[in-house]
């Protein structure tokens, strides 16, 4: 009866699959002006960054030897930097790095 242009299609009832793990529709790396940079030498694995990060962007690696940062979702709030007990974390301007931010074509 009617045609809906391809780019304007909406799922039936507006129902979408729940993201399991990460929601690729809502990557937030472009919220970031400064990113936290870790000095693994200074890190004593106190896990404060893991505990305080509001977006769960720090986790331990499989071997339990070092902390891993999630570049795609970190919004650059730098709470981890202020909560770090050993000054292993420091802020660095995002334009000091070539990559690390997911470049979005449109915001939504």
């Amino acid at each position: 009866m009617f045609k809906i242009p391809k780019e304007r299609e909406v799922p039936f009832g507006g129902i979408v699959p729940a993201p399991v793990g990460e929601n690729r529709m809502m990557v937030t790396s472009n919220w970031r002006t400064y990113r936290p940079v870790i000095d693994h030498e200074k890190c004593n694995m106190c896990l404060n960054c893991f505990l305080y990060c509001p977006d769960a962007c720090w986790h331990e690696d499989e071997a339990g030897e070092k902390m891993v940062w999630n570049a795609d979702y970190c919004k650059g709030c730098l709470i981890c930097v202020s909560e770090c007990t050993t000054e292993a974390l420091s802020p660095a301007h995002e334009l000091d790095f070539e990559a690390g931010v997911v470049r979005l074509e449109k915001l939504f």
Binding site: N30, H93, G100, V101, R103, L104
Partner: peptide
């Protein structure tokens, strides 16, 4: 904020 140029196609 200059860092925005990395995260969005600002010239769209």
């Amino acid at each position: 904020d200059a860092a925005l140029v990395k995260g969005v196609n600002v010239l769209r």
